[in-house]
Amino acid sequence: MSATLSAPRKWRKPPLIKNPFLRWSLLLGSLAYLLLAVGSLEVNWSRVYEGLDRGGRFILAFTHPDFISRWSDIYDGMMESVIMTITSTAAGIIISIPIGLGAARNIAPLPVYIICRGIIAVSRALHEIIVAILMVAIFGFGPLAGFITLSFATIGFLSKLLAEDIEDTDRSQAEAIKATGAAWLQWINYGIQPQVMPRLIGLSMYRLDINFRESAILGLVGAGGIGATLNTAFDRYEFDTAAAIIIIIITIVMCLEYLSGVIRAKVQ
């Protein structure tokens, strides 16, 4: 018991980076970079001052949004956006499921895995706007370009996350189904699907939400939807109409958010 009599042993959490020189130089380096970066920003204060006035008018427009005078434009744009969102999400989900299965290393053979991961990588590498510009060039202006763009983006998002969820499934449950003599599809249906279903539903709802918001942007490059209406309203300095459109977008996104919460709670 002599050890208890000696001085208490000190303990500190070991630092993340062992080498003190490296640790401090990284810290000081990032600080210096941050200062230089802020210093390099050129701010035209007089332009900011002019803009303040317009910004103020835009914010004030939210107190009297104008749903009426451009209602038919808003209605058409909104319907286009909603249809684009729902169809592209549905198409995206249907295509994502086989690709997601193929991109899960624990159930797919290596060649299939590489092909499916490749498709996902291509889909994720290109931002929606770039795809939309390309699609508008191919299919012309209108919602078809938007539909294809969003379906394409959905595949990258959903397949990747679905594949990762499949890779995280409990092996023993799938093994037990395999041991009964089940065929491959039965094995997926009984051993894998029940384990990933809640996440697949949650992700699909989330993607529906994302696709709606994206559909509002795609109008800016001519791929149809409410974005085009919003852009026109800004071009005409009709801030009250723009405010009305933004309020509608916010409302719909909030409804989707609430809906996805309810659905996810139900499927757990």
Partner: peptide, 19 residues
């Protein structure tokens, strides 16, 4: 698969499909 049908397996952590 046909042969597996005639071999029942019982597991350590039950390995039931939980959902």
């Amino acid at each position: 698969r046909q042969a597996r049908r005639r071999m029942g397996m019982i597991f350590q952590e039950y390995a039931l499909v939980e959902r």
